[in-house]
């Protein structure tokens, strides 16, 4: 993975997208193989060291929604604060930047339970951004969102990757959008896994193999799926 790249992991339900992402983030134990980060096995990172390298946005809801957006984003600074969690000026400016990038200024004093799904998702991404790690992993950041908010979230991810030179990896079912926005994509399939730039993958006809041909087919010209009647 290169710096400043947006990578999408797609595949059918149960292909192992989330499993892969959660293994990369060391949320769950690996099934097999090794994960290397900066040439070092991820198993050899302790929680604190890893927190400075990888931040996460998971599908699970946060346990307490009685905190303000600002407090939520501020929690992203935890790996850098002192033993009792005092925010320095540097921390505060990073939090401000994260809130500004996700356009949450008007919402920052609202409680999380007052937010819509899309707003909460943006707040979670802001928190990951405030953690200021080289890698941000997001598990299905666009589920439960309407088309407009899906596009909005993905475009934000793209701009985060481009402007802050972070590596952003997300899993998604929005294959068509991913093709248009991602720098690289990983297609998880039961047999073969294709990895590359979206246009290369289209040329390799990787998307055709993703779904059974008698239900959906892939149109290489428009980069979209069509339902077989």
């Amino acid at each position: 993975m290169g710096q400043g790249e947006l990578m999408g992991i797609v595949g059918i339900n149960g292909a192992g997208k989330s499993t892969l992402l959660r293994t990369l983030g060391k949320v769950q134990p690996k099934l097999s193989g090794e994960v290397f980060l900066n040439g070092k096995n991820i198993e050899n990172y302790n929680a604190m060291a890893l927190a400075a390298e990888i931040s996460l946005v998971l599908t699970e809801p946060i346990a307490s929604k009685n905190m303000t957006v600002e407090e939520l984003v501020a929690l992203g600074r935890q790996p850098y604060t002192n033993w009792i969690g005092t925010l320095t000026e540097d921390d505060k400016s990073k939090i401000k930047t994260a809130i500004w990038m996700l356009e949450l200024e008007t919402l920052q004093h609202k409680k999380c339970y007052e937010l819509s799904d899309g707003q909460l998702q943006r707040a979670m991404i802001a928190r990951a951004l405030a953690q200021d790690t080289d890698i941000i992993l997001l598990d299905e950041p666009t589920t439960h969102l309407d088309l407009y908010h899906k596009v909005k979230i993905l475009k934000v991810l793209k701009s985060i990757a481009f402007e802050t030179k972070k590596t952003v990896v997300f899993t998604s079912h929005e294959i068509e959008m991913a093709i248009q926005l991602c720098d690289t994509m990983l297609l998880l399939d039961t047999t073969a896994h294709a990895f590359g730039q979206p246009c290369e993958l289209i040329e390799q006809q990787a998307f055709e193999r993703l779904f059974p041909a008698d239900t959906v087919s892939f149109d290489a010209k428009t980069g979209s799926f069509r339902i077989e009647k």
Partner: peptide, 18 residues
């Protein structure tokens, strides 16, 4: 105190925060 605050997000998030 610090880990208690992080735990409010859930254990996985807390762990990802170090």
């Amino acid at each position: 105190i610090k880990s208690l605050n992080a735990l409010l997000l859930g254990e996985n998030y807390a762990q990802s925060l170090g």
